[in-house]
Design a protein around this nucleic acid. Sequence first.
DNA 1: CCGCAAATGTAGCGACCGCTACAAGGAGAA
DNA 2: TTCTCCTTGTAGCGGTCGCTACATTTGCGG
Lengths: 183, 183
Amino acid sequence: MTTKTDNWLGAMADHVLEHGLNTASLRPLAKAAGTSDRMLIYHFGNKDGVIAALLTHLAQRFTDALDANSTATVATHADLVADVIAFQRRPEMAGFLRVWFDIVAASAHGQSPHIRTGQQIIAGFVDWIAARLPKDDPTPHKTAKSLLTVIEGMAVMDALGQSDLADAALATLLLPGENHHSR
Amino acid sequence: MTTKTDNWLGAMADHVLEHGLNTASLRPLAKAAGTSDRMLIYHFGNKDGVIAALLTHLAQRFTDALDANSTATVATHADLVADVIAFQRRPEMAGFLRVWFDIVAASAHGQSPHIRTGQQIIAGFVDWIAARLPKDDPTPHKTAKSLLTVIEGMAVMDALGQSDLADAALATLLLPGENHHSR
DNA sequence: CCGCAAATGTAGCGACCGCTACAAGGAGAA
DNA sequence: TTCTCCTTGTAGCGGTCGCTACATTTGCGG
């Protein structure tokens, strides 16, 4: 059964996806959940408890969104990365991207719950990518990590309104033909 | 000559590099600058003016830090990226990284001054990389954009405490030998 | 010196923050 | 019913926020 606090978390997550995580405060969160700040403190202990619960809920939501978009395996690394980027650029994913960079920024400031959630999301993302890699990859997990790093870099460029720069990276890095210098 | 507000900006930038940009408020900023919130509002109009001035100052500082670290050209893309990452991982750059992700997060939320500053920093960074590329690169600017995208992805992984993941990406993406699937 | 405008200090406003004291429901056990 | 404990509403505390009204000082041109 879904508990009352679970319902709250769903509504609060919607609010956070719309308005941001790091600027969220108790009274607006409570209003979005149809309750009061008094109750949030009562059931989660303090604001940190609310944020921690929200973070795990959001991580679960992101994993679910990935699985719901579970495409078949693709032929090339470039195709896979292009698919993921196209997925991230869908309008309904904009909220996730906003919250994602809120998490990354908080992690850069050393906030432990955010770091843990970020690692959790990364781990799920790596698995999801590895499962969709061409079957002949001898080290799919390692390949997935590399591709995800590129994807994150492209997401940064997208956030800065530099999607063209992200696309250039995709073309240069992952398409055969032009290649790298040896020593 | 350096104006009074310039001195303020330097001190406020120090404060922001230490304590974060998005959580900065007027009174602590003023204290760091040796003045009062009253004066910040008087000389910059409002808080947005203070932040905007701080953003351009910080962008200039980052560019200066890059130029001060102006190494010679390197032999391979992997070497160049590895150098940049080693540079970003130096302890004295930690504040910049924190502020950088504050800027990225704010950009993801659509805050125009942050987006503009982010683009400015990216542009300077691309130029800096392009100038250090092996001389035989036919399209150094384009190559620099791709490498910077990887660097940003690695920086995200670093912020999340996943430096090993970043290193794996560097090894797989930019080292010759193992390579990519064709269609 | 005077006059005046720029610069600065002091004090505080109204709003929001996280959180808490206190009392009142509300449901189940005796 | 009555007792008890979990839950909830009301009200407000002390603090910080961005910002402003008002008075005072400072420095410069005449």
